[in-house]
């Protein structure tokens, strides 16, 4: 507010400055809406940067923001915008490196394994046919997954050689060579559920069970969420996973095998938390924004 003596306040000047924060998103789903609502509530100005229409002149590598929150639903668009903004000096949450790593299941597995973290047994072949032969030794049942993708799409359980030949023959016919790289995991006989844990920075905010009658327990496939106790073992595993990937806000998917052993299945760089928010008594959007604001203060 302008003072009586006509001198303008710092807040007034600040309001005229362009926002320091960009939110990279084309699709405003429940999570993005809650995050934007939380930013509004805290009066943190922001600009929504829609990657579908954004243009970046590489000969003018400047951006008006100091921090960007990457919430784009398309992995490749998210990664591209994060890379370009980082090149222009913007701190992106999560970083382009983290997006690239988590967006590729092979890189994720290699990174977690190198950090000594428990992951399902896995094999990778450059052609689907090579996987058919290798599965005899690897063992059935197994699960084939695309390197990039979410929500359980194009994930298939291979119960025996017949199933493997049928599914992998279809993968052989896919047009994109990237899709023919064949990533196979052992099938973990989990107890009708998996665990989604949310970790923002070094803090594990909470965890939920995702319960389903289907072996695919993705919330996008209508799995129900229930609170999952944060045991020291789970908390330590999730914290170590985030440390291996690098600083950021992640959704870590954990499988329990029949012996109760915890295995890190995947790490999500743009975590959805609608299901978790229904089960947990925590303002997840608020905690997400807490983490984001911490990064803004540092920058």
């Amino acid at each position: 507010m302008t003072r009586d003596d006509g001198v303008r306040s710092a807040e007034e000047f600040a309001n005229e400055l362009p926002p320091r924060l960009a939110v990279i998103a084309s699709r405003i789903a429940v999570e993005e809406k809650r995050i934007l609502d939380e930013l509004d509530r805290r009066r943190v100005p922001y600009h929504v940067l829609d990657p579908r229409t954004a243009v970046f002149r590489l000969d003018r590598p400047k951006a008006p923001w100091s921090v960007a929150l990457a919430r784009e639903v398309s992995h490749h668009r998210n990664l591209t915008v994060a890379r370009v903004l980082e090149h222009a000096g913007v701190t992106v949450v999560n970083s382009a490196a983290a997006i690239a790593l988590c967006g590729d299941k092979l890189l994720t597995t290699l990174t977690l394994q190198a950090a000594g973290l428990p992951v399902p047994r896995c094999l990778v072949t450059a052609t689907p046919q090579a996987a058919v032969d290798a599965l005899e030794d690897f063992g059935y049942p197994a699960v084939v997954k695309p390197l990039t993708g979410s929500w359980g799409r194009q994930v298939a359980r291979l119960t025996d050689r017949d199933a493997a030949e049928a599914v992998l023959e279809l993968r052989e016919a896919l047009p994109d060579p990237h899709q023919r790289i064949t990533y196979v995991q052992e099938y973990v006989d989990k107890p009708g559920r998996d665990i989604r844990a949310l970790v923002f920075g070094t803090e594990v905010i909470g965890a939920v069970y995702r319960v389903s009658d289907s072996w695919r327990t993705n919330t996008a496939r209508d799995a129900r969420t229930l609170p999952c106790p944060l045991t020291p073992e789970l908390e330590s595993l999730v914290t170590a996973t985030a440390a291996a990937i690098g600083p950021g806000a992640y959704g870590v998917d954990v499988l329990e095998d029949r012996d109760g052993r915890l295995l890190v299945n995947e790490v999500n760089h743009t975590p959805q938390f609608r299901g978790a928010a229904e089960a947990l008594d925590v303002n997840l959007a608020g905690r997400y924004v807490d983490y984001l604001v911490q990064q803004m203060v540092r920058n």
């Binding site: 490749h76 993708g149 799409r153 999500n268 743009t270």
Partner: peptide, 23 residues
């Protein structure tokens, strides 16, 4: 549906899910 604009309100069919969509 995607809200294309708020003033005036304009809706369009939301884009189909693409292969690399996710979290």
């Amino acid at each position: 549906l995607e809200i294309l604009s708020l003033d005036p309100v304009l809706l369009a069919l939301a884009p189909e899910v693409e292969e690399d969509w996710g979290e």
